[in-house]
Design a protein around this nucleic acid. Structure first.
Length: 468
RNA sequence: GGCCCGUUCGUCUAUCGGUUAGGACACCUGGUUUUCAACCAGGUAAGAGGGGUUCGACUCCCCUACGGGCUGCCA
């Protein structure tokens, strides 16, 4: 057994929607914690007051809820902890692991310019106040900088990246508390992760270098260092950093485009992580299997075809009641009209024959069009072609026979096959105009299913409409 | 510029020194079929390049190329 219960967290900045990459990071943290009976916490990193908005926070929470990633307790506001951050900065001062720096930003800029002019390969700012006698401190604004070790190296023992060694001389004495008394991100994350009892930090590898400086803060405070796992970012289909031009980058976009959350979870879990040859799995299985060692080291590209394939499989295994619920949520998210009571009833009775033929919700709804539309059924361009004068005549000859037949597949089958035979055509040639009459679409469930679902009267009425 | 990370079929990946380099999606061919979806049979397709180490490298080391990240009183 592990020595301490697992605590993971997702810590987004509320400066925009929930990015698909962030969604996957959250998913990994969630899977890791949930699969081990641990806790998954949520912290909103809102210390950047200018860019943080409540709307963004709401969008992120909504994205997580849609993905089905439930967090333990309330979401924590990082900004609300600012006094505690300042307290820790002063503790570092007391411990001698931090110092007050009175250098102005102009002085720092000048230092860098000079270093650059001298052709230095890199310019790590070295504050003259690092070892200054407090008696010499002026009465002026100051920042608190960490007194980082200048020799040796810092080793990040990363569960994904391996052993990463950073030379301490390449790291400057980072600011932990700004001149206005507010904490920097570097200090805030460490303090919060420590205070929240985070045991495993699973986050994007854009933070890999930062981990070294953060680890110095842990050391400076004598705190236990968490298990690090820096996961590669997700790229667009062209291998470049994911951006708007690649299409959907927000988790909410996928909701609005009608991808089921279960399919998204499956796809995102599998993107950059593998458990042997497992491709299609439920979240329960993912929780059981997920581990840090299965995470790949290279960035993965988004592949919408594979996403769709998995979504189709998940739609097919979703229970009707749950599926209907998701369908209605999709309609709302996509800003499409809500279902009427009648549509809901017919749709729910149609799910069994449409859910295994659709990869997304809009596709499913399109195939269930026969159940959602009402007379007069308007045929789309493709299906309209199937309705010529000959087929109209055939439909006309068919309707009287439907009046008394037993309304079951067994009853209908002989009628339809006999009709096709009587006109010397294959069943396919009869099914096409039937589809047009019943659904106004050329891609539909079986004609029997449709007839059974909408019933005898509606079937006959639609056929008569089409026969003209 | 400096530092750090990465590179197996088109894509996601398996492999953890010895395999005919496997699977999935996509694609192509054939079959099935009541359209779509699905399904069945088969096929095309990969270790970035160059050096080492080793009896033997996709696996370990070095260099190069390419991609990404960090280098803020942003997070």
């Amino acid at each position: 057994m592990s020595s301490r219960p697992v605590v993971t967290r997702f810590a987004p900045s509320p400066t925009g929607y929930l990015h698909i990459g962030g969604g996957r990071t959250a998913l990994f943290n969630w899977l890791y914690a949930r699969g081990r009976g641990g806790k998954f916490l949520l912290r909103i990193e809102d210390t950047d007051r200018e860019r943080s908005t409540p709307e963004a926070t709401a969008a992120i929470l909504q994205g997580l809820r849609w993905l089905g990633l439930d967090w333990d307790g309330e979401a924590v506001s990082q900004f609300a902890q600012k006094d505690r951050h300042a307290e820790v900065a002063h503790q570092m001062l007391d411990r001698g692991t931090a110092y007050k720096c009175f250098s102005t930003q102009d002085e720092i800029a000048a230092f860098r310019a000079e270093a650059e002019a001298k052709g230095a390969s890199y310019a790590v700012f070295q504050s003259p106040w690092r070892d200054a006698d407090p008696a010499s401190h002026p009465d002026a604004p100051y920042v608190i900088r960490m007194k980082a070790p200048r020799d040796g190296e810092t080793v990040i023992d990363d569960q994904v990246q391996g052993r990463v060694v950073i030379k301490n001389e390449t790291l400057d004495d980072m600011i932990v508390l700004r001149s206005d008394g507010t904490p920097t991100y570097m200090l805030a994350v460490v303090v919060d992760d420590h205070d929240m009892g985070v045991t495993h930090v699973i986050r994007g590898d854009d933070h890999l270098n930062n981990a070294a400086r953060q680890q110095m803060v842990y050391d400076a405070m004598g705190w236990a260092i968490p298990v690090w796992a820096h996961i590669p970012l997700i790229h667009g289909p062209d291998g470049k950093k994911l951006s708007k031009r690649h299409g959907a980058t927000a988790v909410g976009d996928y909701h609005a485009q009608g991808y089921p959350a279960a399919g998204m979870r499956n796809y995102l879990t599998r993107l950059g992580w593998a458990h042997g040859d497992a491709e299609f799995f439920t979240s329960a299985q993912a929780m059981e299997w997920f581990d840090l060692s299965g995470i790949g080291r290279s960035p993965a590209r988004l592949d919408f075809k594979k996403l769709e394939n998995l979504c189709g499989q998940h739609i097919a295994i979703t229970e009707d009641a749950a599926l209907l619920h998701e369908l209605e949520a999709y309609l709302a998210a996509a800003d499409r009209p809500a279902l009427t009571d009648g549509q809901r009833d017919l749709l729910s009775r149609s799910l069994y024959c449409v859910k295994d033929r659709a990869k997304t919700f809009p596709e499913l709804l399109e195939k269930a069009h026969f159940a959602l539309t009402s007379r007069p059924v308007v045929a789309d361009e493709a299906s309209a072609k199937a309705l010529d004068t000959v087929s109209r005549g055939i439909l006309k000859s068919l309707t009287p026979r439907l009046q008394t037949v037993s309304w079951t597949k067994e009853g209908l089958e002989p009628i339809l096959t006999e009709t096709a035979e009587a006109h010397g055509i294959g069943f396919g040639k009869l099914a096409a105009p039937l589809r047009t009459a019943l659904a106004g679409r050329s891609a539909t469930p079986s004609v029997y299913d449709m007839m059974l679902i909408i019933g005898r009267d509606e079937t006959i009425a639609r056929l008569e409409d089409a026969a003209g």
